[in-house]
Amino acid sequence: MIYQDSETLLEVCGLRANVNNIEILKGIDLVVRSGEVHAIMGTNGSGKSTLAKVLAGHVAYEITSGTVFFKGKNLLNLAPEDRAREGVFLGFQYPIEIPGVANNQFLRLIYNTMRIQHGKDELDPLEFDDFVREKMRLLEINPDFLDRSVNEGFSGGEKKRNEILQMALLSPKLAILDETDSGLDIDALRVVAQGINQLTNRDNATILVTHYQRLLNHIVPDYVHVMDSGRIIRTGDKELALELEAHGYDWIGTEHCAILGT
């Protein structure tokens, strides 16, 4: 939702980034204010997942120019864990498996780390158990998630739900969800989308990185950006996503009417 009195959360200006000396991002400008939902769409290889990882601070990417400010702080100067503690959350496209680490312990650790960040006391294992089970009930997540190793042996849909559960625990200021809809069947997509909708409010913002329009049937974006070859070549409202769905990405390429920024 676009609010008149919203604060600027994220301000990306002229961002360029390389991986293995190949330029992937070629000048990104993007402003995200509290309360807003942005969708970033584009073909495979357009750079949208790279943008998500660069914002989260993945070490494989080298920033060559541009600035990123988050709540007025220079995000590029912060280590990945500090970005997370400031409230940047990345929902991974392919959440990695961590064998041997119990999911409930992992969830408690990340949740308590966030509480300490906000000057609150840690929850003990029993308190946390009550708390996390309530969150899981709301998100329609099977309680057996807690007893398994982090993402190990999870189906694609279970991994995505586990991401949304973590998002629910951490209540991020800015959630960047990278292809959260990929690999989900229709029911799982509905559940995950409902979860995301429950978590959005006027104080936080969400960036949905997606290839398809179908997620946007469940989560209505305020802005839709289309990326191509490392740039945002067009920005519009939810109608843009529908047009893309109808005409395909090639249609944008022939229009030559890129509107940069918002």
Binding site: G57, E81, A84, F92, I110, Q166, L170
Partner: peptide, 17 residues
Amino acid sequence: FYFAQRGINNEEAVSMI
């Protein structure tokens, strides 16, 4: 990186793994 993205530094992550 997964741990870091959830606010956990490398040392703690290694210890947990």
